[in-house]
Simulated scan of single mutants.
Amino acid sequence: MDSYTPELATDQIRLLTKVARMYHERGMRQPQIAAQLHISQPRVSRLLKRAVDLGIVRTTVIAPRGVYAELEEQIEQAYGLTEVIVADTEDQADEAHVMRALGAAAAVYLETTLMGGERIGVSSWSSTILATVEAMHPRPTPVADQVVQMLGGVGNVTAQTQATRIVGRLAALTGAQAVYLPAPGLLASGDMRQMFVTDPNIEPVLQAYQGLTMALVGVGSIEPSPLLRESGNAFAESELPALRGGGAVGDVCMRFFDETGTHVESAFDARVLGIAPDTLRAIPRRVAVAGGTRKTTAIRAALRGGWVNVLITDLQVARSLV
């Protein structure tokens, strides 16, 4: 930015200031200013630009209440993310309120950014993703080609209805084809998983993961969510110490990672029927809808490990991240 110099005459400064005030404070248009001051419109334009260069005019963006643009930018820069959206969630004690706020923010994000031709992978047992699809409005024209289940969606009948609804409703809202993974997400053994992998109904779904352009996921902590526990796809309580012993703090699609975001490889992986860690992290746009203070450590680790590159979270978690 230029600075004032002795060579810049006082009358020039006066004219610059006068034009700037007429334009920015009084709302006058450039032709009006030119006519009133008896100067040309091109000169008015040059004077306005010069006023900015000299710091006479400074542009300030004031975020309205409930918008946290500066905080979002801080998180983006700290973790190398493409985008961060902080939902306005002042009542942190009410988990249902936080869930609705996250779902509403994610719904607006998807409605705004889905432009067509997307192949979207979704996690099956995420309450925040369910809240997202419940909050979305149908698009007037198709904005996605496929919605693919990234983790086996078969489980307890009541919970399975929710997992099916995530895929089916998102597909209906976006005009896409729904692709289900008709198997449990967690199997009793690696041998049992191997049987499913070669099933003609399962194999094409697993192959579809290679062409996904976007992933829509939740972030889990070691303690399974109520929806996951109800589904019957959660690891048993007796198995959790082994995960903790390996350093695991959270998961995305039941792929666990430590505090640095590094994948915790274990025998548990062989029992999960869903997208592989490397395949997941190769998807160009990976959107996490996750919040709640109990998940702060897991969310931070997921960001560090590159499991996601777009984060939609609540205000308290966002503040903790920076």
Rank of each mutant, 00 (worst) to 15 (best):
L206W: 06
R304I: 03
S126E: 03
Y209A: 02
G55R: 07
R43W: 11
M1D: 01
L303E: 04
G80T: 09
V249K: 01
A87H: 08
Y23I: 00
A69R: 14
A35L: 13
N156G: 08
E265G: 03
N156H: 11
A51V: 01
A78D: 02
G274F: 06
V84E: 03
T213C: 09
G232D: 01
R21Q: 13
L315I: 07
M99A: 14
L173V: 02
Y209P: 00
Q77P: 00
V197W: 05
L102I: 09
R319L: 13
T297G: 03
D278P: 00
T260K: 12
R65I: 11
C253G: 01
D94T: 04
Q160R: 13
V57D: 07
I85G: 01
L114P: 00
R244T: 04
E265A: 13
I202T: 01
Q74E: 14
G121W: 10
A93M: 12
A144H: 05
Q177T: 05
L311W: 11
D94Q: 04
Q32I: 05
H38M: 03
L71R: 14
S3W: 08
V264H: 07
L186A: 03
R169N: 10
E83T: 10
T296D: 05
T5E: 14
G55V: 03
E134R: 15
A302K: 04
Q12H: 13
H38V: 02
P182M: 13
A248F: 13
A267G: 12
G27Y: 08
L170C: 02
Q74K: 15
G247D: 05
I283T: 03
P224W: 08
A107C: 05
V133E: 08
A107V: 07
H97R: 14
E73Q: 15
T59D: 05
L16P: 00
L212P: 00
V179N: 01
T141V: 15
S238R: 13
T17Q: 06
L187K: 03
D269A: 11
S127M: 12
I275C: 10
Y209K: 09
P226Q: 11
A215W: 07
L47I: 14
G218C: 08
A9C: 07
E7Y: 13
P140H: 12
A87L: 10
G292H: 05
E230W: 03
V219S: 01
V157G: 00
Q30D: 02
A248N: 05
L54G: 01
G218V: 06
M136W: 11
E223N: 08
A93V: 06
L102Y: 08
I13V: 15
A87K: 07
E118F: 04
S221G: 15
T293D: 14
E223R: 14
P31C: 09
S40E: 06
S238Y: 07
T10H: 12
M136N: 10
P6C: 04
D91R: 13
F256Q: 02
E72F: 12
G220Y: 04
D251L: 12
L228D: 02
V217K: 06
P204W: 08
L321N: 04
A176F: 11
V179F: 07
S231F: 10
D278E: 15
T141Y: 10
I85M: 08
V205H: 10
A248P: 06
M254D: 09
T17F: 10
A270I: 00
T5W: 14
L273A: 04
R285K: 14
A106S: 15
Q32H: 09
M150E: 00
T132S: 10
